[in-house]
């Protein structure tokens, strides 16, 4: 049975709505099942974003819906079939309100879930940076002295403001993408994802 991996969290609802528009059935999310029937002979599996890329790359899922932040960071060996009309936000550099963001004598300490992407984008701007990889609650890092700044996803900016941070620079626009396993792509019967 063909399988699509969906990113849990903020991308899940819009992904299910988009799949409904394509003729799929909305699965029951009330239980704890991670593998759900979608109709049309497909099933969905629910994963964290980086795992969507891993599952698709290795053929455990035929297709996946994942943010372009994950694609930029992990560069999975998979096809990037199309961008999707949801999940739009941005990857930004943020720092505490009132702070000096580019100290002269020491590297800027940046906490992020995206060290490779951040390094590439900040190096292009000539910043001297040392990265600290964290996997959750990135906004805490400058508040507790772990870092001078963060690189993280920003949607409305509300979380930054609530934690005393300001958006210094937008590094990359982000949105959802549909990706495909290289082998499975050849055997998908119809390109239902187009249009």
């Amino acid at each position: 049975m063909p399988r699509i991996a969906l990113t849990k969290g903020r991308l899940l609802e819009p992904a299910l709505a988009w799949l409904s528009e394509k003729g799929f059935t909305r699965p029951d999310l009330a239980g704890r099942a991670l593998c759900l029937p979608l109709g049309r002979g497909w099933e969905a599996v629910l994963l964290k974003g980086p795992d969507v890329a891993v599952f698709v790359q290795n053929g455990a899922a035929d297709l996946g819906i994942v943010g372009s932040d994950v694609l930029e960071e992990d560069r999975p060996d998979a096809y990037d079939l199309r961008d999707l009309p949801f999940g739009r936000c941005r990857l930004s550099l943020a720092a505490p309100v009132g702070s000096e963001t580019v100290p002269g004598q020491t590297p800027l300490r940046v906490a992020t879930k995206y060290p490779r992407t951040a390094e590439r984008l900040l190096a292009a701007r000539g910043l001297w940076v040392r990265f600290i990889r964290v996997t959750s609650s990135v906004e805490l890092a400058p508040l507790l002295g772990l870092s001078d700044a963060i690189v993280d996803l920003v949607d409305t900016g509300g979380t930054l403001r609530e934690n005393g941070l300001r958006e210094v620079s937008v590094l990359l626009p982000v949105q959802s993408h549909l990706i495909a396993n290289r082998g499975a792509y050849r055997f998908l019967e119809e390109p239902w994802w187009e249009g």
Binding site: Q57, G59, N181, G183, F187
Partner: peptide, 9 residues
Amino acid sequence: AFSRRHPFA
């Protein structure tokens, strides 16, 4: 060449 039974060429 690809097969349904493998994710890579």
